[in-house]
Design a protein around this nucleic acid. Sequence first.
DNA 1: CTGAAAGCGCTAACAA
DNA 2: TTGTTAGCGCTTTCAG
Lengths: 378, 378
Amino acid sequence: MAEARARTRIAAVRSERNVQSDRTESGHRREHLIAKAITLKDVAREAGVHISTASRALNESTRSEVSSETADRVIAAAALLGYQPHPFARGLRTNRTRSVGMVVPDLVSPFTPPILAGAQHVLSEVGYSLLIGSDDESSPHAKTAVDTFLDRRVDGLIVANARLDFTPPEALMGHNVPTVLVGRSVERKSLPAIVCDDRAAFALIVDHLVALAHTRIAHVAGPLDISTGLFRRDAFLDAIARAGLATTECRVFEAGAFRSRDGRVACDRLLDSDGAFTAIVAANDLLALGCIDAIRERGLDVPRDISVTGYDDIALVDRLDPALTTISVPYEEMGSMAADLLLDLMARDDRILETSYEPIRLAPSLVVRSSSGPVRSK
Amino acid sequence: MAEARARTRIAAVRSERNVQSDRTESGHRREHLIAKAITLKDVAREAGVHISTASRALNESTRSEVSSETADRVIAAAALLGYQPHPFARGLRTNRTRSVGMVVPDLVSPFTPPILAGAQHVLSEVGYSLLIGSDDESSPHAKTAVDTFLDRRVDGLIVANARLDFTPPEALMGHNVPTVLVGRSVERKSLPAIVCDDRAAFALIVDHLVALAHTRIAHVAGPLDISTGLFRRDAFLDAIARAGLATTECRVFEAGAFRSRDGRVACDRLLDSDGAFTAIVAANDLLALGCIDAIRERGLDVPRDISVTGYDDIALVDRLDPALTTISVPYEEMGSMAADLLLDLMARDDRILETSYEPIRLAPSLVVRSSSGPVRSK
DNA sequence: CTGAAAGCGCTAACAA
DNA sequence: TTGTTAGCGCTTTCAG
């Protein structure tokens, strides 16, 4: 009912507009195809007020400057016509786009989507749009994703692919766009970051292994130029020390990338080395799977001969044989917290850059499965 | 060198601007913080030409209207100052945003990210930004993702979450925004779509099973209100018929959702039913895993007693025991093709809506692993 | 409380 | 070939 009436009214308004502008056209056959959007001017005319009054009535913050009767009338007219403010026209004035850009390392790696989902959900809730971009490593001369976002005048930036040596591009500082890091933090704590508490995670893992009587524990690290590689290694060594184990007994091997085949290569080197060990703590699940491959290839058993643990708890590792003991990371929550934090930052009108931000660390949890077991009694 | 000079020049230009506009201010202490962006006017002044000349020189399509010397000078000035056209100001005039919206069913389901990645890559290559949105099923009164995108005046739309009964919202038709479906198509072929060739896929699977001497093959379907549920079931029945098997011998059970536990429930019903069968073709990998669970729970073996096949070839199903025989789907390519098709559509100036579009079907491939085997000779 | 008018940064008629 | 001018749709002074 009301809807039908609205539709009629919209058509009428559009007609008026078209008559004005398309007078030269023979007819309006295509009107339903190229319908021009309802503009504030239409709403104002419909409500019988000046366009600026309509603007005030429609904007939360200026509504008080208008009599409530007029406001109601304008709001009703806007609703009737299905008015939607043109974001560009508004943005041009306000210098705000109500959009944020998120740059991700790799859309198809297992932890990117949940971060994205968490951020997306929070942002859409408050009317922000999420632009997504990823840097194409293969064409280094291409414009970086951050630059593209800056060109688009996003209100804020979520960076999920920071390398350790990441420093906010000068452009970023110049434009002064609020930015938060997520997933990976950076060496110089120049930007706020939401990360997983690696120290807590490795304390959980190492304690678990120690409880199983392991004393010689090796670590297969990820690339050390990424925080998840470097920080997890440090967290590992820290946990070892805190557990009272001699860190000198604990070997660390670095994998070239966070992929199973790199884990396998690293584990092979580990197995070739002289040190004896009974457990391998891998920096993530894929590396752990590679380790298991390498171990089995030598006729050894997991966990009977060597225990292996992962990190991330990606899909299906619970169904593998052996099911992977790993760390569950609240990636989605990290995404939503990053978005929340960014919204905070954007809301502040003072743009004071702190010199150093302590990362916000979210608590992980240990998931014990069958890839870790007691040290074999000889 | 050149860079330092440029920086100096930018600062100078910004100063001039600030002097003009901020004459009343006491000082420029915060100038480096709230640096205003370089505008076309600045470039024009720097090059000593009128703003409109600068505009023409900077725009590919109008560059021929200005002398090459002037053009060069303007371009040099723009480069020197690091000028970036304001997308809103431009969009306001041109009515184009150079952005496209993609609405996905679920960011964390296994096949969404590759589609996203494919589309993102293609679009960023040609200077388009990708907005991402997903509908929150839980709050049905919330504005739909498509509406949000329409409000943002995206130039095009990629819809990856269409239900079978999806009809382009009236708004969409009214706004006349080019739209492409991907992954799922719709019953009424009212929009172009990029999908996987389900018929070819099931022909591959069924032929494979028939070659292993299976004659009684069951299907665990996904929800039948989604194209991947319905179309795959139809494709299954079609493949069965074309293989010369009696479709009456082939039972179909519908799962409530594309999750392993739903697959397990459906498979339980299947096992409880009277029909004898030696193979189960599941509508996707997760359903297949649920089937394997149900079969094993009854003390039966896969593939010795019953063969099971999946669809999608998601990560890690190659490492399960048994490794899953499944269909590999070129999701990333689907994403990039969807983007290509959309770019085509947007480039056309005629907005003729065809009444019916035949979906573009990409070829899948069969990946034979150990979850399928010959019929057990009794 | 409301209307008039300027202008955000840009493109595209129209003039010269 | 270049400059002038008029907006795109909106917010925001400034008057009334």
